[in-house]
């Protein structure tokens, strides 16, 4: 139920912020739309902890500034390699262990890897992620597991693992 409430809140916020009108007709239409979308989403059975990760809460918000800083550093590195006339790249394909317990956590980890320039996650398997890195340094940085531990930490104390239940 908390997931449906969170979805409705997010939809209402998007409606209000995008339209900016506060007359009765548009507010009514917005409320009707939000209600309809939540109803359809409930019927489609997609309102769950994956679409609305409310349980991560503040930990999720604290993660993004750290990721942003990592992205800026990686951007600088990759940009330097690209404009270097000698093109000093050393592409590597490595398998990175992922210690997240849930699929959502693993997807977040894979997306964080891809979002950081210089590393792209190619394939996600249970417990590991195949990563293509532009340079050896980038791959080595991931092997140390700094980012992996961060993402595992925001998963929080959730007991059950769902990795491998739904292959694909």
């Amino acid at each position: 139920m908390i997931h449906a409430a969170s979805l409705a809140l997010a939809l209402a916020a998007v409606w209000l912020l995008l339209s900016g009108h506060t007359d009765f007709l548009l507010l009514g239409l917005g409320a009707a739309s939000v209600f309809g979308v939540v109803l359809i989403a409930l019927r489609m059975d997609v309102v769950d902890h994956e679409g609305q990760p409310v349980h991560m809460g503040l930990r999720l918000i604290a993660y993004y500034p750290w990721l942003g800083w990592e992205i800026i550093k990686a951007n600088w590195d990759v940009a330097r390699q690209i404009i270097d006339p000698k093109l000093p790249i050393s592409p590597t394909l490595t398998s990175i262990k992922s210690t997240q317990r849930t699929e959502l956590g693993q997807v977040m980890f894979a997306n964080s890897i891809t979002l950081t320039p210089g590393t792209v996650s190619v394939r996600v398997l249970p417990g590991e992620i195949l990563v293509h890195a532009l340079s050896k340094n980038g791959a080595d940085d991931l092997v140390t597991g700094r980012m992996d531990r961060r993402v595992s930490a925001i998963e929080g104390p959730e007991p059950d693992s769902d990795i491998g239940k739904e292959p694909g």
Binding site: I71, I72, N75, V78, A79, I82, I83, L87, I89, P91, T114, L115, T116, P117, G118, T119, V120, V122, H132, L134
Partner: peptide, 26 residues
């Protein structure tokens, strides 16, 4: 523009993804 140069300059599709990644984030 650097990302665009990277997409043109890097040797194969996987490395070109990194160039596109620069333009998308930074």
């Amino acid at each position: 523009v650097i990302g665009g140069i990277g997409v043109l300059r890097l040797p194969d599709v996987y490395t070109r993804l990194h160039g596109a990644g620069i333009t998308d984030t930074m």
